[in-house]
Amino acid sequence: MTRAAPIPAAARAILDGDRRALARVISQIEDRDPTAAPITRALYPRTHAVPVVGVTGPLGVGKSSLINLLVGRLRALDRTVGIVAVDPSSPYSGGSVLGDRIRLDRPAGDGGVYFRSMASRGEAGGIAAATREVTRVLDAAGFDVVIVETVGSGQVDVAVRDVATTSVVVLVPHLGDEVQTLKAGLFEIADVFCVNKADLPGADLARRDLAELVRLGAGRAGWTPRVVSTSTTQPAGIDELWENIEAHEKFLDDSGQRPLEERRRLSSEIVELVRERVGRRLSDRLERDPSLRGLLDEVVARRIDPRTAAERLDRPGPPR
């Protein structure tokens, strides 16, 4: 028989709706602080697998503005929302300017919304791991819907598929041709395409082109991505955007895909976590352990190549 571990006070506080405790554990997760582990461990069984909506797309297409209006829509439906907005860290200074919060415009004192800005802090895979953990903490804290904003470039949008149950890819008219969309890897991850800035000329054409592209490329596992037009400056299409997100969530339930997708995400999360741990331990040892340093010396001297060295390190038993 297993005995349940006592619930740490911080986890209890988060479950009871304490927003300071929530904010603090999110910082610990970001900092990769080991003191977060007992808290997130205690919270995990208390999560409900709420919808996690990923909103991604190129710089400046209106992701934050759309999220602001989606939040308004969700509040009108009496649903609470937790938002995490991820921005890249500067590779030079490690710092960042997190500006997504500017677009948030909510009634004073509305406790049904929690907004958190997060820097990617380097490690590409780590973004997904930390973000996943944060979305789960928001889930445990009782939010009905979680929204994650990421800039769609390179690794980040791949990560969104490991975090979100529904991925919304935001584009704008005249951003460039569809080939660029394809190249950026944004096509594969979209459950819903959102052509924002529909108040600008060319929006109809962009929407039609996208719809055509979607029609040609069959959707993933029985779902054909939806295409929605929106404007946040002359508000339009927001209800439709939410309806399509919900339609995808419903599809996940009806088709039996939800548990399969969840498994896939969890599996990649575990692999990522192991990679992080093993990697950290190994790079420490490569510098300190004399026998491993010798191996590194061999590679530096070009007597063996890096791949062979890696194969030797990966072999079970003591390294030679």
Partner: peptide, 25 residues
């Protein structure tokens, strides 16, 4: 940012209530 800070930029015309709420969140 260039000195390595993570800067949460809250923008213009913030009320004291909004500022404090942002700081806590």
């Amino acid at each position: 940012r260039d000195a390595g800070f993570e800067v949460i930029y809250a923008g213009l015309r913030q009320t004291p209530e909004e500022i404090v709420r942002a700081a806590l969140e």
